[in-house]
Amino acid sequence: MRDQDLPRLSRVAVRARRELGARAVSRGWRVLVVGCGWISRHVHLPYLAGLRATGGLRSLYVADADPDRATRAARDFSAEVHTGPLERARADLVLVATPPADHATLTLRALATGARVIVEKPLALTTGDAAAVLAAARRHGGWVYPLYTMRHRPEAALIRRSVLAQRIGPVREMRASWLRRDGVPATQGGTEAGVLWDLGSHLVDLALWLPDWYGNTGKARAEHQHPAAATGEVPHAGWQHRERANQAIAAPKWHGVRAEATLDPERRLHLEASWAAPGIRRDQSRIDIVGEQATLTWHTVFGWSPDRRTVPAPTLWITDADGREQVLLHHQPRDPYAEYTAQLDTAFTALTAPTSDDAVGPLEAAYASTALLHAMQTSLDTAAPVPFDIRN
């Protein structure tokens, strides 16, 4: 594969992969991708095929519950199909990109073989499963890198530096929302865990990571939003595959969720996520970080939305107590491949030369976000506040 054949990768990114590959090839790694759905075909497999083409991998294998899908992926990315149990693959690195319900189990199985693991978000769907992965990694000296994409946006790094440098004072409140006008995933794997775990996992990860809100306990409450009976609208699956736009999705689970969490001491998080929010004309994401001296606002569009090209400027600003605004960034990146490949660059850099300035590592952060999301999910199911503990 030539440089110009690598989909949507800049020359800088290609050079980075050569550098990463030079370190990786010394191990002669065998990489297994488990799950050949949309995200693997559009992000993981092109990236890994490019890394292998520049000398970074010895061999690339794919596996999927659907044999035909695995065969197509192997053909399109010059990989080999692995059949049988994961344990027989003898992989040095396993990338887990299956539906969320399988993430923790497959990660534990891969760790037990001695492999390192990159796993799609969310790490798990329960606090217990996330704790099991964390314990297994610590017990066996294993390495797990969960992929929470939005923290790899360049704006996120700027926000975190600004917040930790006390530019807005101590943070007391976070408001995070991600609303799609018509963004229901088009596959069963995409919808089965619900919007809280799909969009909400990114929001909770950012809400904890940007102000470094780890090591807390508290209570969470959540409720479903705008069910079809109230709005007269039924969302349709048309996000990645427009030809499937007439496939109705059951309500109310698939519409939206609103959640709140109180974190000790006196910190509050407000979250809103929807795949098909009524009354909006464009997808929109917004995070307000409220400090004692000022509020930092990030107005953007996350993910693969076609509305990324139309988000109003500015995208990032600080408003002080007197209402004066200071613009930090006018425009957001328009190409979603930037953050999705950046997260893999970061993962492979950590894999080959582990360094981090964060006091809480990626796996510990994923445990914390899973614990908070699990409390919110339990509140959705019970209609009652639920305590959580995100210390680890």
Rank of each mutant, 00 (worst) to 15 (best):
S162L: 15
V163M: 14
L164G: 06
Q166T: 05
R167W: 02
I168L: 14
G169L: 14
R172E: 13
M174N: 05
M174T: 06
M174V: 15
R175Q: 15
R175G: 08
R175Y: 07
R175K: 12
L179Q: 05
R180Y: 09
R181C: 12
G183R: 09
G183N: 06
V184N: 00
A186G: 09
Q188G: 02
G189F: 12
G189C: 08
G190W: 11
T191N: 09
T191A: 04
E192D: 14
G194N: 12
G194A: 03
V195I: 12
L196F: 08
L196V: 03
W197S: 09
L199W: 00
L199S: 05
G200N: 09
S201D: 00
S201A: 14
H202F: 01
V204G: 05
V204L: 04
D205P: 07
D205S: 13
A207S: 14
A207L: 02
A207V: 08
W209P: 00
P211D: 12
P211Y: 06
D212P: 01
Y214G: 06
N216I: 04
N216C: 15
G218S: 08
K219A: 07
R221H: 12
R221C: 05
R221L: 11
E223D: 06
H226N: 15
A228E: 14
A228Q: 15
A229G: 05
A230N: 13
A230W: 02
A230S: 12
A230I: 03
P235F: 02
P235Y: 07
H236P: 06
H236F: 05
A237C: 10
G238N: 13
W239L: 10
E243L: 02
E243Q: 14
R244F: 15
R244Q: 13
N246H: 07
N246T: 07
Q247G: 04
Q247H: 14
A248M: 14
A250W: 03
A251G: 08
K253F: 14
K253M: 03
K253V: 08
K253L: 10
H255Y: 00
H255E: 06
G256K: 02
G256W: 10
G256S: 01
G256I: 00
A261M: 07
L263N: 12
D264M: 11
D264C: 10
D264I: 10
P265H: 14
H270D: 11
H270M: 07
L271Q: 08
A273M: 06
A273W: 08
A273D: 01
S274E: 00
W275K: 05
A276W: 07
A277I: 00
P278E: 10
I280V: 13
D283T: 04
S285T: 14
S285V: 07
S285P: 04
D288G: 02
D288V: 04
I289N: 02
I289E: 04
G291D: 07
G291P: 02
E292Q: 15
E292P: 01
Q293G: 00
Q293K: 09
T295H: 10
T297M: 01
T297L: 01
W298A: 11
W298M: 13
W298I: 09
W298V: 07
H299K: 14
V301I: 15
G303E: 11
